[in-house]
Each structure stands twice: as structure tokens, then as C-alpha cells.
């Protein structure tokens, strides 16, 4: 019977190993967040949020960075939401069997796997140089919009797929056209799922650094952007810049800025998860 006992020991040993692994990543993250809070929390005050960048760490603030992030968030949303939702609607509701749709579908799966820095190279050549946007907010927003487009498209399709057929039939049965059915029934019914996907995609855009470095977003911008053609910086850029400086004061600044960035990311993800749960409950009619 020793073999049997041995098997049982291995079995429960793995259970604890599994639990350990499951929490490992989360514990490491918790340690890190604790570290960041210990280092950066004392640095966050009104001045930090409203000061322009400075060469002296104690005077430097993140005003240009967080306003830049807000600009990028807004512009990226304006560009990517209509395009992404429209493409998702096309693929799910119109392009069920045509060749174009199946090419687009394979293509989207491929785009989703392209590293973000490659989008930076695309943005650099197309938006910064060819279209002459320079290292502006607009160039950054277009680049990030292309980056998150696949996420929004896939989320839109999933949400539309979950809308029951009976709803479409009811609308067609009333003499509604295809577009009327989509606009009045299918899209509103899928809106919760689509919104969840949009928020997750935008939260991804807020955290991106690499493509913006490539298109030439600046680490040091001494003014607050007032229009889409202005040069800009964003929170992740500011953090990256401070991290690479030797003085400890800047590391503290970076920690403080990370707290703000994580707060934004977690709030967006929290909203998305909340919406997803709410919507999933509702969808079972």
C-alpha cells in the first residue's frame, strides 16, 4: 500500500503547490505595490499634481504628464471607438460568409500579436512623417488607436454574438431593416459587453510607453497641451524618464507617478469588470 500512500501525498502536495503558484504572482505584485506606496505616497500632494516638470526632483510635478494622458485617452477614444465598433458590427452582422470578412478576421488575429513597438514604427513613418503630424498628440492618438483597434473589434464581436437570435427576429418580423435592427436592438443589447471591451482597450492605451517613445513623444514638455497638434508627454513617459535618472529624488517621483498611473489603470479595469459582471447577469433573458 506504500505506492498508494505515496500517490496521495504527491496529490495533496501538488494542491498546495498549485495554491502557492496561484498566489505567487499576486503576492509579488502586492509586495511591489507596498514598496511603491512606501516610497512614493509621501511625495503626492497638490504641488506634485500641478507642477510643471523640473530639473530639481523636489520641485518637479506631473501636470504635463497627466494632462497629456487625459488628452491621449480622449483622442484615442474618439478615433478608435467608432472604427472598432463599426468593424466589429460588420464582421459579426454582415460579413458572415464573404471573403473580405474572413481575410479581415485572420488579419485582426495577426495584428493582435504585433508588438506595440512596431506600431510605433508605423506611427513614426505614417503619422509623424508622411502626414506631417510631428510628435503631436494627434500622432500619438492615431498610433495608439490602431494598436487597440483589434481589442475593441474582438470585444464588439463577442458582445454581439451573445445577443439572442430571437431579438433580431422580433425586429425583422416588424419590418425593420438590417441596420434599424442593429441600431435599435442589437447594439443597445450588446452595449454592456462592448463598453467593457472599450474600457479595457483604453486602459491598455493609457499604460503604453514604447510606441510613444518611437513616435517621439518627449519626456520634458514644459507646458500643458492645449490642442491636438501640441507636443506632449504622458504619465508612463514621465515615469520612464525619471526611472532612468541617477538621483534618488527622481526615483521617489517615479514611484509617486506610478501610484497615480496604477490608480487610473485599476479604476478603469475595476469599472470594466463591474460592467462585465452586471452585463453577464442581464444577458440571460
Amino acid at each position: 500500500m506504500t505506492k498508494l500512500n505515496q500517490n496521495r501525498i504527491i496529490d495533496s502536495a501538488f494542491k498546495y503547490f498549485g495554491i502557492f503558484c496561484t498566489f505567487f504572482g499576486l503576492i509579488v505584485l502586492a509586495i511591489f505595490i507596498f514598496n511603491i506606496l512606501a516610497e512614493g505616497l509621501q511625495r503626492i500632494d497638490w504641488d506634485f499634481l500641478t507642477n510643471l516638470p523640473s530639473r530639481r526632483p523636489a520641485k518637479a510635478g506631473i501636470l504635463t504628464a497627466w494632462t497629456g494622458t487625459a488628452w491621449i485617452l480622449g483622442l484615442t477614444a474618439i478615433i478608435s471607438i467608432p472604427l472598432g465598433v463599426a468593424a466589429g458590427v460588420y464582421l459579426e452582422e454582415y460579413g458572415k460568409k464573404n471573403r473580405l470578412a474572413s481575410i479581415i478576421e485572420i488579419n485582426i488575429a495577426n495584428l493582435a500579436g504585433v508588438p506595440s513597438i512596431i506600431y510605433g514604427l508605423l506611427g513614426l513613418e505614417i503619422f509623424v512623417r508622411t502626414l506631417n503630424f510631428g510628435g503631436s498628440l494627434l500622432a500619438g492618438a492615431f498610433t495608439l488607436a490602431l494598436l487597440i483597434l483589434p481589442i475593441i473589434i474582438v470585444a464588439t464581436r463577442e458582445a454581439l454574438k451573445a445577443v439572442p437570435k430571437s431579438l433580431r427576429e422580433a425586429s425583422f418580423g416588424m419590418g425593420a431593416t438590417k441596420w434599424q435592427t442593429i441600431w435599435y436592438q442589437t447594439l443597445p443589447a450588446a452595449s454592456g459587453g462592448i463598453l467593457t471591451g472599450i474600457i479595457l482597450a483604453l486602459s491598455r492605451a493609457v499604460g503604453e510607453t514604447a510606441p510613444l517613445i518611437v513616435i517621439g513623444a518627449l519626456a520634458y514638455v514644459p507646458f500643458v497641451a492645449t490642442n491636438p497638434m501640441d507636443e506632449f508627454t504622458v504619465l508612463p513617459m514621465q515615469i520612464f524618464n525619471w526611472v532612468s535618472r541617477p538621483q534618488h529624488g527622481f526615483v521617489v517621483n517615479a514611484a509617486a507617478a506610478i501610484i497615480i498611473l496604477l490608480l487610473i489603470t485599476f479604476i478603469m479595469n475595476g469599472i470594466a469588470i463591474y460592467l462585465r459582471n452586471k452585463w453577464q447577469k442581464k444577458v440571460n433573458w
Binding site: A86, A87, V89, L100, N110, Y119, L149
Partner: peptide, 30 residues
Amino acid sequence: KNTGEKIIEGALAFSGLITILTTLGIIWVL
């Protein structure tokens, strides 16, 4: 099919085409 519906379908398909243009753009640039 009425023309409005056709125009809408075209606009939606164009949005999907943007993703193909993105891929072509990446390949061309590189």
C-alpha cells in the same frame, strides 16, 4: 436593398478595411 442601407454597409466594411491597411502599412514601412 435601399441605398441608405448599402451606404451604411459600405462604411462598416471600410472600418474593417482599416485593419488590413494597418497590416499593409506596417509591412510597407518595415
